[in-house]
Every structure is written in structure tokens, then in C-alpha cells.
Design a protein around this nucleic acid. Structure first.
Lengths: 197, 197
DNA sequence: GTTTTTATACTGACTGGTCAGTTTAGAAAG
DNA sequence: CTTTCTAAACTGACCAGTCAGTATAAAAAC
């Protein structure tokens, strides 16, 4: 199944993803040209269109791929943990992810709350999947009494997700010298306080 | 001083601001055309260039105008208040602002953490001015012992600013039916807890 | 007060360039 | 002998910015 041909192809697609994510994080989708993406990936323009339907399709697959990884990390992080520990693990996982896929996180932050774009629907769905993992832990915690009973599951989950994203990206952009541990500690401290019953 | 001519011109500029902010919030800067802006403002394309140097210049002035209003609101909100009350007042002011200038808030969220764009410098400066108002209250609170001594002023201030923006815009985009008071209460509750000495 | 002049505000067709996407003939990899 | 990629030319839509000309309000001249 994974013969040399499809591995090679997967490699090319990966290089295109990396090139696209970096450029789009910097300049935004519309300001990034297909020629730029191809050049940075070290590939001919035709190859982009051999591997993807269109520029938009490339971007949508990129979103699917990136958020898919994040969701998987979230699932792995909470696996088997009780609610309060699960929340701490989620914060750690999110920051770790953002540190590793910095450009993708920046791109997400820029596109997440935009309306009226073609991929809006896709993004909304994917966001829902990632947040649902958080929501499961919050829901369990509220049910078991480990978390405040008056906590609104939906709001708390999306707030946790969004706050991690902003604080981490803000740190990456405006105070890149500061060690990530500081940010993680600050965020964990906040979550711990808010989670107090 | 305010003769018919300059009043008319100011009117046109205002209409262009409103049109531009709505379109850019939806589609982003690059995907918004000058023709679109002119059409929505109900003026000819040439008028845009009569009133502004370029598309980018229009956007930069828009940023200045919008963040200027926010900073002024912040100053008015904290005026004379002791630190802890000042923080609550800032949260209220920020949410009130976002409710009123919804599109601008969305635009800010999308463009704030982008790198390598022409207006990046301007935006960074303006962000600094707004956050400095928050920082003054935090600093005073830490000094007087009203706020935890180990609170990092810079991080806390920018986190407060960013969190308000994200939570509010997330609410506007994904749960528009929910009354703003809920969001305000939730946010105030969090800030109160975090601010505990 | 009516006419002429001037300054300011605005118009919209036009231009030069850019960019997504296509096409082609062929090379390289498997 | 098929799949994947290359290189380069090409098309057509779209778009930022320009410019010659028009409209209008106020000031100047009569």
C-alpha cells in the first residue's frame, strides 16, 4: 500500500503544506500566491495543481490536517485522566502544539473568527471537533462535582481553547524571548483558580 | 471652522471607514477590493483616492481611529478608580466597545498577531498604547498590595486585553443569541478570581 | 442680489500589472 | 509502462491606482 510512489507523493504534499502554512500565516490567504507556495516548497507550479484541486482546496486540506493533529494530541493528553488533571493536561498539550506548529497556530488565530469565507464551514466544523474533546472533560468534571456546578460547558470549553491560543500566540509574537514554561505556568495557575469549586 | 465643505468631506471619510471595516472584518484586507469599499460607501472609486493616499493608508488610519476610541474608553473607565475596581471597569469597557464596534473588534482579532505586513508597526504601537492604560492599573495594584505581588505586569495586561477580545468575539461569532451580560459576568468572575491576593 | 471666479470634492473610464489556473511536451522515479 | 513531477508559455479575469473632466459651495466682483 505505501509503495515508493505514494510515499513520494505524500512527501510533496507535506512540503506544500509546510510552505503554504508559513506564507499564509505571515501574509494571509489572499496575499499568498500559488507561485510563492510552489517556489518555497521547491516544486513546479504544475505540481501544486497535480496534487490539489485548487488553492482553496489546498488550504482546506491544510486546515483539516493541522486541526486533526491538534485533536489527536488533545485526545492523547486526556486519556484516562480525571477531570481536573485532564484540564491541566489539555493546556499543556495546546501550548506544546502551538510551540511546535507556530505558524499554523498563528494562521488559526487569524482565520478562526472570520466570517463569509469559503472555508468558514470547514473551519467551524473542525473547531467543534477539537473543542468537543475539551468539553468531554469539562462535562465529566461538572457531573462528578470536581468542577463548579454553575460552569457552562460550551462557553468554558471554547474559552479555554481560545485563551490558550491567544496567550500563546501573543507570547510568540510579542515576547519571544520569554520561556514557554512561564506562559504555561501562568495559564495553569489561572485555570486552576477558575476551576476551584 | 466647520464649513459645509469640510463637514461633507469628514462625512465621506466616515462612510469609507464604516464600509472598509465591515468588508475587511469579513474577508480580510487583501480580499477586500477598493471598488467594494467605494460601492458600499456609495461613492466613486476616485473618491477613495481623493481622501486617502492608498488602500493601505486608509486601513492604517482606520486602525488609528478605532484603537484611539478604545484607548479613550479605557482611560475614561479607570478614571480615579482603585486598582481592583479599575480592572473590572476595564473589562466592562472592553466588552461594551466590542459590542458597539463589532466589526472592528473582529478585524483586530484577525490582524493583531499577523507578522510581516506593512501596517504591523503601526498596529504594534497602537496595541501598546491601549495596553499601557491597563498596565497602569495593574502596576498600581501590585504596588499597593491589592493584586498578587508575583503578577507580571506586562503579561497580565496583554493577557487581559487579549482574553477579552477572544472571548467576546467568539461569543459574537459562535453564540450570538447569548446575552452579553453572561459573557461579562463570566469574564468578571475569572478576573476577580485571578486577581485574588 | 446677481454674476463671475475659485477652491474643493467627487466621478468613472482607463491602464498596467498581477495572479489563479491551463496546457504542453517531456523527464525522472518507481 | 505508469505515476509523478518539471519547465515554460499562455489566458483571461481582476484590481490598485490614475487622470481628465464635472459638480458645487462659497467668496469676489459688480
Amino acid at each position: 500500500m505505501t509503495d515508493g510512489r505514494s510515499r513520494r507523493r505524500e512527501d510533496t504534499r507535506q512540503r506544500l503544506f509546510v510552505a503554504a502554512v508559513e506564507l499564509i500565516a505571515e501574509r494571509g490567504f489572499s496575499a499568498t500566491t500559488v507561485d510563492d507556495i510552489a517556489a518555497r516548497a521547491g516544486v513546479a507550479k504544475g505540481t501544486v495543481y497535480y496534487n490539489f484541486e485548487s488553492k482553496t482546496a489546498l488550504f482546506e486540506e491544510l486546515l483539516r490536517h493541522g486541526i486533526g493533529l491538534l485533536t489527536a494530541d488533545f485526545r492523547a493528553a486526556v486519556d484516562g485522566l480525571p477531570p481536573r488533571e485532564a484540564l491541566a493536561a489539555l493546556v499543556r498539550a495546546e501550548l506544546e502544539y502551538i510551540r511546535r506548529y507556530r505558524a499554523f497556530a498563528q494562521l488559526l488565530l487569524s482565520e478562526m473568527w472570520r466570517t463569509n469565507r469559503e472555508w468558514q464551514q470547514t473551519l467551524r466544523l473542525l473547531r467543534g471537533e477539537a473543542i468537543e474533546v475539551i468539553a468531554e472533560s469539562v462535562r465529566a468534571g461538572v457531573a462528578s462535582g470536581d468542577l463548579p456546578a454553575d460552569l457552562d460547558v460550551g462557553t468554558a470549553s471554547s474559552a479555554l481553547f481560545g485563551v490558550g491560543l491567544v496567550v500563546a500566540v501573543d507570547w510568540l509574537v510579542f515576547q519571544p524571548d520569554r520561556p514557554i514554561e512561564d506562559v504555561q505556568e501562568a495559564l495553569l495557575g489561572i485555570v486552576r483558580r477558575v476551576a476551584q469549586t
